[in-house]
């Protein structure tokens, strides 16, 4: 990274431009080209952000668990895996928050209430709190390897919540509707351009996630390097004192 200011490379810059174009296309399709729903009217447009947000959060937490498993099982235990896990976890929490906020707005307009303690909302709130806890555990101090070890174990436990959240609407009686696409009946319940806009949102948000993770894990690498440099300086100072 010598001679480089920031965490970007030509590849991430190109990806960033592509993400902006995808999000702009999503905005056009979601707000302009796709029709209103016969029951919900324009409220349906919230879905093009709400569903991709939670989808991206699932991917993020899946990546966190995968990298944590690789870190714990690997021979050399490279901290790069831990940094990707941490970066992915942070961005996952952000996307769950977006999903909760947009879902709450949709709920007010459709259900008539911002929040209910039904199976889907309650399990999603639990998922959010769990990963906020995961991020806090990462900041508790100790060496990088201590951080990596304890957070990897937690990530492998936390990922078990994802199927619970996704299938909560079929396992229990919930106010939240069942999935319109990834449902057990394998029946897609969305009309043409609505389905297209939803998939566009899934792709755009996934690309945004990749872009954010690339930058964040590089920033974490710099933070770790800065921290290690502080340790090197301290060792050198003590050696000087001992030699004096």
């Amino acid at each position: 990274m010598a001679g480089q200011s920031g965490t970007g490379t030509s590849a991430t810059r190109r990806l960033g431009v592509l993400v902006i174009l995808m999000l702009a296309t999503l905005a056009l399709c979601g707000l302009w080209f796709s029709a209103e729903d016969v029951v919900q009217g324009s409220t349906v447009r919230i879905m093009y952000v709400h569903v991709p947000s939670i989808w991206t959060a699932y991917i993020a937490f899946g990546l966190t668990a995968l990298c944590s498993a690789v870190y714990l099982s690997g021979k050399n235990r490279s901290l790069a895996w831990d940094r990707v896990a941490g970066a992915s976890g942070e961005i996952g929490v952000l996307f769950v928050a977006v999903s909760l906020v947009t879902g709450s707005m949709w709920g007010r307009l459709t259900w008539g209430t911002y929040w209910v303690w039904d199976a889907r909302l309650t399990s999603t709130a639990f998922l959010f709190i769990t990963y906020v806890g995961y991020l806090a555990v990462r900041q508790l101090g100790g060496t990088h390897r201590q951080r990596a070890r304890r957070s990897s174990v937690l990530a492998l436990l936390a990922i078990l919540e994802i199927p619970l959240v996704h299938f909560s609407v079929t396992l229990w009686r919930s106010l939240h509707q069942e999935a319109s696409v990834a449902n057990p009946n394998a029946k897609v319940a969305l009309d043409g351009l609505m389905l297209f806009s939803l998939f566009l949102g899934l792709i755009a948000f996934t690309m945004l996630f990749v872009w954010l993770v690339l930058h964040r894990q590089r920033a974490m690498m710099l933070e770790d390097a800065f921290s290690d440099r502080g340790l090197d300086v301290a060792i050198a100072a003590r050696r000087n004192e001992a030699g004096a």
């Binding site: 729903d37 016969v38 459709t110 106010l175 319109s180 319940a189 043409g192 609505m194």
Partner: peptide, 15 residues
């Protein structure tokens, strides 16, 4: 004293 509309998982375009 309270009603919540339980929307189905089907979305139909207004046309």
């Amino acid at each position: 004293d309270r009603i919540e509309v339980k929307h189905s998982n089907q979305y139909v375009q207004k046309n």
